[in-house]
Simulated scan of single mutants.
Amino acid sequence: MNKAELVSKMAEISGMTKASAEKALNAFIEAVGEALGKGEKVTLVGFGTFMVTKRAARKGRNPRTGEEIKIPARKIVKFKPGSNLESIVNKKK
């Protein structure tokens, strides 16, 4: 599912227009991005938690040359699904 399909589905489920659904989705993405940028966790009970963690610097290899390279430390975004989301995903049909 891409963003346009998600907007259409949100509009269908909520009864709002596609334009309103797209505004709501964009606002959600912006709000989550800002919170994660500040290092905060975003928890949506039943859905899951978005969090920022640090990945340590490490050594890697260039796949073309086999040469060893340094991979710098960086922050990454992780998502831990909530129990309701896991049960929906694992529901047998």
Score class of each variant (00 low, 15 high):
51 M>K: 13
8 S>Y: 02
27 A>H: 10
58 R>C: 15
2 N>I: 00
3 K>L: 10
48 G>F: 07
30 E>I: 01
79 F>T: 12
11 A>S: 04
23 K>T: 14
86 E>G: 07
37 G>M: 09
36 L>I: 02
87 S>Y: 00
23 K>S: 10
2 N>H: 04
22 E>I: 00
18 K>C: 02
2 N>P: 06
42 V>G: 03
65 T>E: 02
66 G>M: 10
41 K>D: 10
36 L>D: 02
3 K>A: 14
41 K>E: 05
61 R>G: 08
43 T>A: 14
9 K>V: 07
63 P>V: 10
23 K>P: 07
33 G>K: 06
22 E>L: 01
40 E>P: 13
13 I>V: 12
46 G>R: 09
30 E>S: 06
46 G>A: 11
89 V>G: 08
61 R>Q: 09
82 G>C: 12
24 A>S: 09
62 N>F: 12
68 E>N: 04
71 I>Q: 06
16 M>R: 05
90 N>P: 00
68 E>Q: 08
43 T>R: 08
46 G>Q: 04
55 R>C: 12
33 G>D: 01
28 F>S: 12
54 K>T: 14
43 T>E: 14
7 V>W: 02
8 S>R: 08
11 A>F: 07
9 K>T: 05
71 I>F: 02
45 V>W: 03
72 P>Q: 08
39 G>A: 07
39 G>D: 09
16 M>P: 00
76 I>S: 11
62 N>Y: 09
77 V>C: 13
78 K>V: 01
65 T>S: 14
53 T>G: 13
12 E>H: 01
73 A>I: 09
74 R>A: 15
5 E>F: 03
17 T>Q: 08
16 M>Q: 09
45 V>S: 15
7 V>D: 03
47 F>D: 12
7 V>E: 06
71 I>V: 13
7 V>I: 15
88 I>Q: 12
42 V>S: 02
13 I>S: 09
52 V>R: 01
24 A>V: 11
83 S>Q: 13
42 V>K: 02
3 K>E: 13
80 K>I: 14
49 T>L: 11
82 G>I: 11
22 E>W: 00
81 P>H: 12
9 K>F: 00
50 F>G: 05
1 M>E: 02
67 E>W: 00
